[in-house]
Design a protein around this nucleic acid. Sequence first.
DNA 1: AGCTGCGGGGAAA
DNA 2: TTTCCCCGCAGCT
Length: 547
Amino acid sequence: MNLILVGEPWRPLQMPADTTQDADSLLSYGMKLTWDINDPQMPQEPAHFDHFREWPDGYVRFIYSSQEKKAQRHLSGWAMRNTNNHNGHILKKSCLGVVVCARACALQDGSHLQLRPAICDKARLKQQKKTCPNCHSALELVPCRGHSGYPVTNFWRLDGNAIFFQAKGVHDHPRPESKSETEARRSAFKRQMASFYQPQKRSSREPEVMVTDTTRGLCSPVGNPQDISGNLNNMPAPEPRELLDMTADTSFSMTDQSCPYFPNSDVLGVTCDLPTFQGDVVLPFQKHSNPSIYLPRPPWSYELAGPVGPGPSPYSTLYKDPSGIPDDTDWVHLNSLQYNVSSYGSYESSLDFTAKYHGWKPTQGKPGLEERVEFGQCQAVTTCPYYNPELPCRYLPRPPAGAQALQTVITTTVAYQAYQHPALKHSDSMQEVSSLASCTYASENLPMPINPQALDPPDAVMQAASPSKRAPVKLPEDCQVLRCALASPQEADPFRTDGADAWDVCLSGMGSVIGYLDRTGQSFNFDNIITHLNITLPKSKNNKYVH
DNA sequence: AGCTGCGGGGAAA
DNA sequence: TTTCCCCGCAGCT
């Protein structure tokens, strides 16, 4: 197949008339232009800027205004650390992954621990020495291998009045706690600690001392042990857009569960032991009925264990003394069941996907957009980064190791069906293709059909299904990725004025889908499966860093 | 203490 | 040569 993506540099890609409008509503501005972060000359004076994306994923490009504060700070929801690329003009960051419980213990609501790895090496080592606040087993760092076995990389480049952002790779791990959440929680913790040391002053007035977050319509009494976790009522005021998005979440109750509680009485006992507050203290979060309120990440599915790339598995050496007292402030209660999809941006992710999804309709397919990349063969790959031979079931709460084959079969079938639908109807009718699911390039905003002939279904299926194919799928450097996504303009953020951002739903692989559906008891039908096909494409030869 | 950016330098392909 | 990563340092919060 030939995904010919040759566009005139710095010019918006030409779209067929009947799809231009849709494309405009789905493309980020950065993706409409053809540029690479390493280009000697960047698009000059972009006409538009993209909204800041907190959770960029996939091979995406955005152009932010140089006035965008978050872009200025090179922020990301992902835990990105600076990586030296020996290029002073381009800031490169690589993803650190996510810190999880080594035993993948299920919290009270079935969710899993997903911490934000400390950026600082020393701090991260210190962090990993701590134990899971829920089961007291070790914490482990799940490295990101989403870019050809290497961590996903983000590039930032300031050029004129624009900040160019380019991401390479697809995160193959759940989202960690976002930086803002971490900071908010830590600051909240400090405030809570301060209040704890003034118990008498507060106790007499406790009914009056309500930390009210009017922006979220939440309040809870300070000093209540349940409040120690300090999350909801101490979260920073969201940006207007985020606030709007929260109110758009139909599952969000403004009244109930405003007071988080500790899911684990053991933990509660620990955290209520004031002396232990002096140091790092576990601050378990209780998931809100809508966890997106303060857990705005839809963790990737864990089910399909997979290779860890070139490096050794980090999981085998992480068990520690389970009797250790949790001493980490950095843990958050997540619901991985509802959020096995990846949405983009803090505002996108604040919405309850499960509530939205059923109202979605497939977007219109788009004829191949052009990218200044030379395409050749495409290869469907799975994203299975968590396989650990020693812990074969760690992310498979239900299927035992022996069920692998069964899951493989199911995965095969569904994967092929998911693939085949667009394939069978692709050639002449984009609308028919898109009636099933649109395949978007680079996961965000750029819908582009996948030519089925290049996907080579058997190969793709085999790779996704065969246990023997669990070996790391080495991809060409800087390969491009096509990700089938379901994007619904109708469901796009209604508060977004430019309509540039689409709701992309990307799963980390068919196995993830199956596992998710399996866990949630949903049937294997196409509507329940949002394909996430990674199509690798050869690297552009001129993709070099400017030195 | 931790985050961030810069830069030196080694390893691997 | 290119592209990784690790590491240390300094500035900042």
